[in-house]
Amino acid sequence: MKFLKRYKNGFIEYGKYSVIGIVCAALDIGVLNALLYFFPTNDTVLLTIFNSTAYMAAILNSYYWNSKYTFKIKKSKKQFIAFIVQAFVSLLIANIVFIGGLWVAEFFSTLPNWLQTNIAKGLSMYLSSLASFFFNKHFVFKDRLEKGTS
């Protein structure tokens, strides 16, 4: 029975995490597209900087809402540092997938640049979000799980 309750709670957590993720995704895409609108570029270095800026805006928003709503924890310096470490690893994943997606998109040059960029962004967001959920659940907020409040 305890297994079923834990499975159900994990499913509910993932649902809450997903709702917050949608809001953060909108913020992430919004910041990226605003930067591209005001500073249009195809330069990979600038695109990586833009992607990182957008990602960090979303990840800080994610920390606030997931710590308060999804995992319902008291924030601590230890957890915030762990969160920043996981955010950095997730950012690396996001940028590798983003740049890889841009490289693949070059083969589909009939698509407008903004669409190629947003497709690459979407794929990077999805894969980095999966990694981020895993890291948050099993490393950042693990103390809460060890106390039996999952």
Rank of each mutant, 00 (worst) to 15 (best):
V85N: 11
G21E: 14
S132L: 02
K68N: 14
K78S: 14
F11H: 03
S128I: 03
V89D: 09
F135S: 06
Y63H: 12
A82D: 09
R6V: 12
F71R: 11
L36T: 02
I59C: 07
A57P: 06
F107A: 15
K8F: 12
L123S: 14
F3Y: 13
V104H: 10
G101M: 07
A26N: 07
I93W: 03
T41D: 00
T44D: 00
V23L: 15
M125A: 05
F39T: 03
G100W: 01
Y69C: 11
I84A: 15
F134H: 05
K74Y: 09
L102W: 03
N95L: 09
N33T: 01
K72I: 06
L47A: 00
G10E: 14
F133S: 07
F141S: 14
N33H: 03
G122H: 04
K8Y: 12
M56D: 04
S124P: 03
T53S: 11
Q116F: 02
L46Y: 01
L60P: 04
G148Y: 13
F38Q: 01
N136C: 12
F107T: 06
L145K: 15
I81H: 04
L46R: 01
F71I: 10
Y64L: 10
N95P: 10
K16S: 13
D43A: 01
K16P: 08
V104D: 15
D43S: 02
S67H: 07
S150G: 07
K8H: 11
G15K: 07
T41E: 00
I73P: 10
K72Y: 07
T117D: 00
I12E: 03
L111C: 13
Y126S: 03
P40L: 05
F83P: 11
L60T: 08
I22H: 08
N113W: 01
F71W: 08
I29Q: 03
K8I: 06
N61I: 08
L35T: 00
Y7C: 06
D143N: 10
I20K: 08
L32E: 04
Y126P: 01
V89F: 12
F98Y: 02
R144I: 06
G10T: 13
D28N: 15
I93H: 03
F98W: 01
Y64Q: 08
N136L: 09
H138F: 04
A58N: 05
S90C: 15
K77P: 04
T110I: 12
T53M: 08
K5H: 15
L123I: 15
L46T: 02
V31Q: 07
L4W: 14
F107S: 10
E146R: 13
D143G: 06
A25V: 04
A131C: 15
N136D: 09
R144G: 07
C24Q: 07
F141K: 14
N113S: 02
K16Q: 13
F50G: 00
C24F: 14
V45R: 01
K142H: 08
I22Y: 12
L27F: 15
I29K: 01
I99G: 00
L145H: 14
Y37K: 08
A82R: 15
Y37D: 06
M56Y: 15
V19W: 11
K77Q: 10
S18H: 05
T70P: 10
I12V: 10
A120M: 07
L111V: 14
A120D: 04
P40R: 05
K137E: 06
S150H: 07
M1Q: 05
R144Y: 11
W65M: 15
L123G: 10
